[in-house]
């Protein structure tokens, strides 16, 4: 922003104010504060416990599908609530779209880790499910059913 403007010159404001034009992201800052308060009320230990329980349940159910490849650790130690996988013979984008139409949202593609997929795993991409405090075991059951159905369709 400027300090002074006339018809033939202008003077910029000092740093950092000269780079702070327009309305600051006030709503964003207030929203972040509210989100932090919400999580503190639930308790981060509870959040972690819930996530671990769901991850354990999901790993248990998904690893029973012989045609599914799960990447990364198969237990909750050293793992967060994120599970990447591929369904045999089905492209990750196809599986993701199939699940999407059943109301199940997973991420598909490289997940910002192209070297891992291309060079190490040697796959075109993968699907990735993740859990949070608003998920429950029913969601994981739906995911498993969705994957089973996708296998039938493709």
């Amino acid at each position: 922003m400027i300090r002074e403007v006339s018809f033939d010159y202008f003077i910029e404001n000092d740093l950092p104010h000269r780079f702070e034009a327009g309305t600051p992201n006030i709503a964003g800052a207030v929203g972040l504060g509210a989100a932090c308060g919400y999580l503190e009320k639930i308790g981060m230990t509870n959040v972690l416990e819930h996530e671990k329980e769901l991850t354990e349940y999901a790993l248990c159910r998904l690893s029973k599908l012989s045609y599914l490849t799960i990447y990364g650790p198969k237990e909750t130690t050293g793992k967060i609530g994120v599970i990447a996988f591929n369904l045999e013979g089905v492209h990750a984008h196809d599986l993701a779209q199939f699940l999407d139409q059943k109301g199940i949202a997973v991420r598909s593609g490289h997940h910002c880790a192209m070297p891992l997929h291309k060079q190490k795993l040697k796959v075109a991409g993968s699907c990735r499910a993740s859990f949070y405090i608003y998920n429950d075991k029913n969601d994981i059951d739906s995911l498993v059913e969705g994957i089973k159905e996708a296998r039938k369709v493709f």
Binding site: F98, Q101, V153, F154
Partner: peptide, 14 residues
């Protein structure tokens, strides 16, 4: 489902 993975698309894919 009915619109996206229509039978003719899956047929061409398979």
């Amino acid at each position: 489902m009915d619109n996206f993975y229509r039978e003719n698309i899956l047929d061409h894919y398979r």
